[in-house]
Design a binder for these strands. Structure first.
Lengths: 196, 196, 196, 196
DNA sequence: CGCTAACCGAGACGGTACGTCCCGTCTTTAC
DNA sequence: GTAAAGACGGGACGTACCGTCTCGGTTAGCG
């Protein structure tokens, strides 16, 4: 496993697999094409993964980078800013990244394959829990109006996913404050411009 | 087109196509298998649709039944009840129906094919507009707290889609009031159990 | 089976299979290459024969042309002439024909595959029986010296096969009379140059 | 070459190669399988022989044991007995031995590869020359009827090879006297029971 | 009420990708 | 320092569908 040739091949293939997933989708995903993208023999591909699903599942682990460290704890109303940060991260992830390009393929694959499903739900769950706990904190501090933090988190995340998957118009980072205000806010709000 | 043999074939094939889509997914969707399901020759299938995408797009039109007539105009706070009704309809549609079974395949196909994309976004848009206008009415009447009706609609619909697509736990009809309250409500609520 | 496309494909493929057998041998026999020789899609090949062995077995039936009609009954010592004719036919078949080119492949394939073995032994047996009966007749008529016709037939055929398979020097038609004389003859001989 | 490990490997591999040739035939002969049979790494195999043909050719040299020493000079008609001995040896070799098991593969390989061809023809030639010279002696002594010793030798050897390769019924040692009588004999014969 | 036109199934055709196996070459590691 | 382990690119295997096509047979509905 430490053989440098293996590392080279695996890396190139995983990257190529994500490219292929983004470009061709899950249905038209072709092992042949992945190998070609990676500049690697087809047999090398099959030496490392027995079939399409194993390769895809493995490639997806690659995407598993979590939103980011808590924050640099700003001044006032820190939970509000934190929620915005998490959602902006999500909005951006669903606009530009490899995740976004692969998401529709993933959603579909999850329906067919338990491994992919596990990955997708786990991915989603981790984000959601982070969001839920920040919201709960905010409620406790009186920053947000009271309510069930889980439902609120679903509404916030849901809006972002919905716009990406079901409409042609993903949520832009600039729309995040409005969204947060709609779900969590109650009185006059003035979210700062935290972060990029 | 009025030849009864044609009608019979078309009908059986469209139905079979939806079955196949639900059972095998978009990736493993097989024309061969659709023809077999429909008890029809493969060439008959290709006589009506030139390829997989045309067939799928056509089959999906079949599902295009809109949420339902306005309502039977109940007593108090009619918009509140109407919003709940729309969301319950959506929640149920995303739990049981053919739509639900095909949705992941659709989301994926939409990414690849303009026709499917158009269908999916149109489908989504019609629902959303109905919801938006009801919300706007409710805000105007003072039933809901004030805010941007579109953002609110995204949060509500989004939560339902999100739970279906990204978690293993779709929204149950009983959860709808809590969701509506979280996004639209502000003060004391007591929505009745309107409708099934 | 009466579809002209099928006939065209089958014919071209069987011919190509024999060519391939002669050129590449049994070990290196490639379905891919047969299809290419026949100018036919690989899938068409596999539609008609499930695998290499079935194709080869079928192609060999093609070779199953028996030595020829009895003879045009010449003057004196007719059996002597007939034996020479049969052996000359064999000698020629093992020098030039498709059979000759395929024979080594066949001998080998027969060892591995029952179908091929049956074909080869049947092929051999028919020739041998014809030869045996002519020899028996000749013995009865006093044309040949007495002995066991089967042993004599083995010696005659054997010499021809042996020279083809184990030495680089097949039996030339001109050598046939000498061979026949060695095994069957006893007294003064002078067979004419009957036939080609 | 004097390294004992090398000798051990070579030996095991040559033996394994013959086993594989007998078991799988020439067509299905697999280097992978030879290495496995010998309990040796694939790369070790390729260190000693560059490819399949070199290995097979080398392995066949192993079989190159000549028929046997002249004889223990019996009483009368010594050439007759000697011919029978040579043919019995051949008959047995083509019934039981490693040679017999490999012969069809060899015949085929010889057609494809000059090295194998050389080996096979050489092998055959040495036997044949021994036989020819004994026959010539016998003719000179008046033991056999007169004729061309080479043709006679072809008929005798040929019968044995023919029965092995083209029919399912190899020549049994007991059939040898009859065969010899048919080709060489002229008058009343009574071969002794020389040798096993 | 019989004819013609369409629609039908069956399935051949050339392709492409699958996942498997083995080739002969090569690099790396461990004894 | 040699041998085992096994990665590498390549290519054929036999399978499954693809989308196109050619076939007869049947079934409609019009004349």
């Amino acid at each position: 496993m430490t053989d440098p040739r293996v590392l080279r091949s695996r890396g190139a293939l995983l990257e190529a697999a994500l490219d292929e997933l983004a470009a061709a989708g899950y249905a038209a995903f072709s092992m042949e094409s992945v190998a070609a993208r990676a500049g690697v023999g087809r047999s090398t591909l099959y030496r490392h993964w027995n079939d399409r699903l194993q390769l895809i599942a493995d490639a997806l682990e690659t995407l598993n980078v979590q939103p980011g460290p808590p924050d640099d704890a700003p001044a006032q109303e820190p939970e509000w800013g934190h929620v915005e940060k998490l959602l902006r991260h999500l909005a951006r992830a669903l606009t530009d990244s490899a995740v976004s390009r692969c998401l529709p393929a993933l959603v579909h694959a999850a329906e067919q394959d338990a491994g992919v499903r596990e990955f997708l739900q786990g991915y989603s769950l981790r984000r959601r829990q982070a969001l839920v706990s920040v919201i709960a904190d905010g409620i406790a501090r009186g920053e947000f109006r009271s309510g069930d933090p889980e439902t609120m988190a679903d509404a916030l995340s849901g809006a972002v996913f919905y716009r990406r998957l079901m409409t042609g118009l993903p949520v832009a980072p600039g729309e995040v404050p409005g969204l947060v205000a709609a779900v969590l806010g109650d009185r006059m709000r003035r979210p700062d411009r935290g972060e990029t």
